[in-house]
């Protein structure tokens, strides 16, 4: 029984890992926590909904096309909004990201209304392994999230783009002297962020109903995951997300499931009191 909760927590942690990693990438390069993360996830879910339900594509293709379009939208938002604020303080940027969040969420509300929607997806019977009940959506979620994490890890570790992203995060002025063009790295980072967040939106939309507050339900948990991993550390964010997922899910054994976000909030508070650099924060070298 407990094993089932831990397994479910693991899977929801995987959904969480995508926006948490996206958050740390943006934090690394632009040094502000992106409060629009939740609304971006919502819009990603709706984009796939358009292709899946209204244009009748299989969800896989709808998700791929939707995430690519949203990658472009994310770059567009950066160019239109955040680029104008590059030299401002982190606080200005995060207040602005709140504004972006309202705009995105309400564009979705304007078009689709407040009603809950869901993807057109065949329902398969859950499978049983070692006493665990595993449904089809969970398998898809786990496979997609793991694949996305591997791709991001590969980009960061083994490509010139990844080296440049980490170099800009470490020391932007030195990177500039080495010929790394910050603006182009920022654009790529938004593209990756947009893709990851939109994919997370689709996975979240498979897990629960799609409504304009879909992403908002993840925002506190996403921040909890990112802070747990030490803001700005992608690998830490993944571990943080899995931890948050499992803790939230198992907490429903003791407290009402409505209070999941409260658990995340308490986790953030406790962590900031006890170990503000994050569980893995020491792995990041400041100087």
């Amino acid at each position: 029984m407990t094993a089932q909760y831990i397994f479910n927590g693991f899977v929801s942690g995987m959904i969480l890992a995508l926006p948490a990693v996206a958050l740390t990438l943006i934090y690394g390069i632009l040094k502000f926590p992106n409060f629009a993360s939740g609304a971006m996830l919502t819009v990603g879910a709706y984009l796939a909904l358009i292709f899946n339900v209204y244009l009748g594509m299989p969800l896989l293709w709808a998700a791929i096309i939707g995430s690519l379009i949203f990658a472009l939208i994310a770059v567009g938002i950066d160019q239109a909004v955040f680029r104008q604020l590059r030299e401002r303080t982190a606080i200005t940027l995060l207040v602005c990201s709140m504004g972006v969040s309202f705009v995105l969420e309400n564009i979705a509300r304007f078009i689709f209304g407040n009603g809950a929607r869901s993807y057109d997806l065949a329902i398969a019977r859950p499978k049983h392994f070692f006493g665990l009940r595993i449904n089809n959506e969970q398998i898809i979620t786990a496979a997609t999230a793991v694949a996305a994490m591997i791709v991001v890890y590969f980009i960061l570790r083994h490509t010139a783009l990844g080296r440049a992203m980490r170099a800009v995060a470490d020391n932007p002025s030195l990177a500039a002297v080495r010929g790394v063009r910050r603006e182009s790295i920022v654009r790529w980072t938004w593209a990756i962020t947009g893709t990851l967040t939109a994919v997370a939106g689709v996975l979240a939309g498979m897990d629960r109903a799609i409504d304009p507050l879909l992403g908002w339900n993840y925002i506190v948990s996403t921040f909890a995951a990112a802070i747990l991993g030490g803001l700005g550390n992608p690998v830490g964010a993944v571990i943080g997300a899995l931890t948050v997922g499992v803790v939230e899910e198992t907490s429903t054994l003791f407290i009402p499931p409505n209070y999941r976000q409260v658990v995340s909030f308490l986790a953030i508070a406790l962590l900031l009191i006890l170990r503000p650099q994050g569980l893995l924060g020491a792995a990041k070298i400041k100087k």
């Binding site: 080296r163 980490r166 170099a167 995060a169 470490d170 020391n171 030195l174 990177a175 990041k284 070298i285 400041k286 100087k287």
Partner: peptide, 8 residues
């Protein structure tokens, strides 16, 4: 001084 990327 700050002339290398410490996390690379």
């Amino acid at each position: 001084e700050y002339n290398v990327f410490p996390n690379l």
